[in-house]
Design a protein around this nucleic acid. Sequence first.
DNA 1: GGTCGAGTGGTACGGTCGTACCGGTTGGGC
DNA 2: GCCCAACCGGTACGACCGTACCACTCGACC
Lengths: 203, 203
Amino acid sequence: MPAPERTARGAARRAALVTAAADLVDADGPAAVSHRAVAAGAGVPLAATTYYFRDLDDLVAAGVELGCRREQETAAAGLADLPHRRRSAAATAGLVVDTVLTPQRTTDAQLYAYYERWLASGRHPAARPALQAARERLDALLAALLDRCGHPGVPVGPLVALLDGTVLSALVEGGGQGRARATAAVADLLDQRKRRLREPSRG
Amino acid sequence: MPAPERTARGAARRAALVTAAADLVDADGPAAVSHRAVAAGAGVPLAATTYYFRDLDDLVAAGVELGCRREQETAAAGLADLPHRRRSAAATAGLVVDTVLTPQRTTDAQLYAYYERWLASGRHPAARPALQAARERLDALLAALLDRCGHPGVPVGPLVALLDGTVLSALVEGGGQGRARATAAVADLLDQRKRRLREPSRG
DNA sequence: GGTCGAGTGGTACGGTCGTACCGGTTGGGC
DNA sequence: GCCCAACCGGTACGACCGTACCACTCGACC
């Protein structure tokens, strides 16, 4: 079952499976990926999943990879269209949150699935490379975004950490405030940094 | 199956089940909790799990609750023994990380399980109250800790968010650097705040 | 001593799961 | 026209799952 799809039809079917897997991961987290669910989602027989993927880990990894990549591609496209202009901390924070979470992810269920995806490498080691790459691309995307918004040089690592942790906390609390809390927290961080830069560290 | 254990023996058996569930959650996350795994862990027959718990959600919630509570109790005890003394940002950060993650949680697998536990309310709504309460107690614990270390008034929410997000990022990266990264990030935050306080915001 | 309810434990049912198997089909190269 | 690989798709197996059932034991109380 090496399945190096050589046929156009084969490649299309494999792509359909990966798309179905990515959709499942996005909607319900990596745990929702099963051979049967993916096959049903792609509209192909069950056996196609084992023909094109070594095992479930492989299938999950492919779904995670596509899910990360496709949403970052649209984020990158949006970033390219964004005019280079100084923006307020609040406006910038909104764009940061949109870049990290995508504008589509609004409900708590979607945010749960999102963070379950980041944790996917725990249960599915094959997904780790995709997640690492996605994380690196995200950092680059955010650095470029912050630059375009007149907030250059902001350390991206702590900013993403603050965002993620804030959403996590809001998920525990419940009530769908994840995005709002994260936006406020990021805006605060940008504001603090701006103030710090205005008065250079002690003469 | 209301199971309001009236017998001392019954209460003990229920406690054994909850302990086994908490151990499973700690070791492998909430998804590892199954009737059979809990029964085996507690050394009781399978049917005991359905006798003492309405359904699996109930069992998971009980395990999550105990897991959170017992580790916070030891953290609170340690805090009570901690002498009130000014401490460096680095030393304080180490204590903060120990309070949040417990000193025992060192491996990546344990940290994965820890954050899966925070996400438990997504799949197991019954666990939400326990997680909310745990989060509130954690905030109080940290506020007290920071006070004892000569860092009073530090906003705890963003601090925990930064810590959690940093560990999350380190888990994606892999390599077991979660604690170290989190400690450094928290120390940085405390240092920045100290500097900010030293030169009061612009005359 | 009899009763009654809490607790016990073995067993079973219906379902989903990952994965394997295998005969059938197709389509491009000789 | 044939062949061979890629591909297809139905089916099956064994494992584990949540949950239900039920005959049983035991201890307290009338």
